[in-house]
Every structure is written in structure tokens, then in C-alpha cells.
Design a protein around this nucleic acid. Structure first.
Length: 302
DNA sequence: GGCACGTCTAGGGAGTAACT
DNA sequence: AGTTACTCCCTAGACGTGCC
């Protein structure tokens, strides 16, 4: 049984509910977390999705989200989609109603769940039915019919467990290297890492393409940016120069450069925006921990 | 899989302008 | 004066690729 934290918010512009849960112990390290969501707004809503160090799996049982890439191309994927590690921001949009479940996988977890070389998913969005066919559609139908978030999370647990049993093992050296990069917060010497592992840097890069989707230096950079975003989401006073040093940037100019590349604007612009996240800056949200959310199926938000 | 080498890019650093 | 946003240049290291 998952411990579920439900966050709700309502205003004249609409309302949303998010159900957040950790994965069970046997999926820890492969799945970061689950986030069930339901949103109803008076007008279409567009949202910027920032790059991060997780592989996102979106299971949709409401109207399909539009996904817009940085060239403005629009795609919709029946049953949902997955996005591998991405070094650019993207945009999602719904017409006023959105209902689904997001699974945040670690790159190594995604490698096992999808059974694909991860470079085939990096910097891309791929429809789940293109990857899993009818299996994806059946899962989403099950989720739509389930009586609440707890039941949905249980379905997803079971599905992912089956996929993991069939999926390829991740090479132990790569797992070790990824953990080292995480522990160092992205601040470490990749050549030294390869030496410690007793491999050539060429071999290490090749394995990272296979199991992670990006070379180690890029993963480290993305991880550092991700920490910066988490730091902004946590709130509190921000001094850019101090934050840059805290995160291992040489100075504020380099923090600024990463934000430009990953978000399209300076860090102050991100701070001003409402981040679309439970831990974000949306004011007035109510939080409570429950086994089953009160906003059950078949009932509208309002 | 390892070595060597060329290319590319991020890091390090300096500086300027705008704003408070 | 201090902070933030932004640009530029040089260098070291990361990465890609051909060859063995």
C-alpha cells in the first residue's frame, strides 16, 4: 500500500489535484516517484517542461496532451508517451482538462523498463503504443477504470515489475558511475571516473549512450541544473552568485548560461513563474496525506 | 576494446550595461 | 555600491571517429 500525499488547489481560473507517491522498495532506484494528476481550467493551459535527470512516462486517461517541441511541431500520443533525457525544454498543452499519471523513472530504470538503448529515447518524445502496442492501451484502460489513486499506483507497480523482470540488466560499472555522478552533484572529473572504473573513456561514453542516453559529462551538467531547479522550487531567498558556488558552478555567469540553454531564459525568469509542481510556488494549495483521495473517480473537480 | 587524433564545447575568467 | 544579465575569449577536457 502506497502512502499517498494529495495536493489540491482551486481558484477562479480552475482547479487541480495531484497524488504523489514513492515506489515500493523493489522499484526504488529504478522509479523516482509517481504523480497522479487531474486538472480542469477555464481556458487551455500551456506549460513549459524543463529538462531533468529523470525519464518521464506519461499515462493519459483523459483528453490527450499536446506536446510541442522547440521547433513548434505538435504531437499527441494515444495512451501517453515517454520522453528520455532531454537537454532542451519542451511545452505541453491541454484544452482545459487533463487527467493522467506520470511515472518518473531513473535513466537506468528506463533502460530496464523499455529494454531499448537509451540513446533511442534521448531528446525525443515517443508514443507508448509505438513502444508497447496493445499492452500500453490495456494498462491505460485499467488505470481509467480503477477506483482511485491507490489502485492505479498498484496497477503501475505490477506493470513495471513485469517489464523489469523481462528487461535487460544494467551493467554494474555503469550503475556505479551514475551513482558517483549523483553523489558528486555533477561535479567530478569524467576522465578520473573512467580510470577508477578501469575503462577507456571511449568505452565509458559508449556504455552511457546505451544505458543512460547521454554521455557522462552531459548527465553531470543536467544533474547540476536539476539541483538548481530543485533549490528554486524549495523557495527561500536566492543570491545567484552564492547559489552558483553552492552548486559547483564557477560563477553566476556560468549558472546563467546553463539556464539560458535549458530554459530559454535567465534564472530570475524561472523564479518569477509559477512552477507546475506540488512543491512549486502556487499559493493556496492544500496538502494532506491519505490512503485514498477524497476526489474520487467519476466526480468532477468543481 | 584500445589508441591516437581532430573537433567541439564547457569551464575559467574578464569585462560591460542596466537596474535598484 | 551591489546585484544581475549578458558577451566575449582562451584553454582544457570531453567526445567522436578511424584504425588496429
Amino acid at each position: 500500500m502506497h502512502s499517498i500525499r494529495v495536493v489540491r488547489h482551486a481558484s477562479e481560473r480552475g482547479g487541480w489535484e495531484m497524488a504523489l507517491a514513492e515506489p515500493p522498495a523493489h522499484l526504488a532506484g529504478l522509479v523516482r516517484d509517481y504523480c497522479g494528476y487531474r486538472e480542469a481550467t477555464a481556458a487551455p493551459l500551456r506549460r513549459q517542461e524543463l529538462p531533468g535527470v529523470q525519464v518521464v512516462l506519461i499515462l493519459e486517461f483523459g483528453p490527450l496532451l499536446k506536446h510541442l517541441d522547440d521547433a513548434g511541431r505538435v504531437t499527441r500520443h494515444r495512451s501517453g508517451f515517454t520522453a528520455g533525457l532531454d537537454e532542451r525544454w519542451s511545452t505541453t498543452e491541454h484544452d482545459g482538462v487533463s487527467h493522467g499519471l506520470q511515472v518518473n523513472l531513473t535513466p537506468l530504470g528506463a533502460r530496464r523498463v523499455f529494454g531499448l538503448p537509451m540513446h533511442e529515447l534521448s531528446n525525443r518524445v515517443v508514443g507508448l503504443e509505438d513502444l508497447w502496442g496493445l499492452e500500453a492501451r490495456r494498462l491505460v484502460e485499467q488505470l481509467a477504470e480503477a477506483p482511485g489513486w491507490a489502485a492505479r499506483f498498484a496497477h503501475v507497480d505490477a506493470f513495471l515489475t513485469r517489464r523489469l523482470e523481462r528487461g535487460p540488466e544494467v551493467e554494474a560499472g555503469v550503475r556505479w558511475a551514475v551513482e558517483r555522478i549523483h553523489h558528486a552533484g555533477g561535479n567530478l572529473d569524467i576522465a578520473a571516473l573512467a580510470r577508477e572504473l578501469g575503462r577507456s573513456h571511449k568505452h565509458l561514453i559508449h556504455q552511457f549512450h546505451e544505458h543512460v542516453g547521454l554521455p557522462p559529462r552531459r548527465l553531470a551538467r543536467l544533474l547540476r541544473f536539476d539541483r538548481a531547479v530543485q533549490r528554486l522550487k524549495a523557495g527561500g531567498p536566492v543570491r545567484w552568485a552564492e547559489l552558483a558556488v553552492e552548486l559547483g558552478y564557477f560563477d553566476q555567469a556560468h549558472l546563467h548560461r546553463d539556464f539560458r540553454q535549458f530554459t530559454g531564459g535567465p534564472p530570475s525568469a524561472l523564479l518569477r513563474r509559477t512552477l507546475p509542481d506540488a512543491g512549486g510556488f502556487e499559493s493556496g494549495a492544500q496538502v494532506k496525506s491519505v490512503q485514498e483521495p477524497a476526489w474520487g473517480d467519476g466526480q468532477d473537480a468543481r
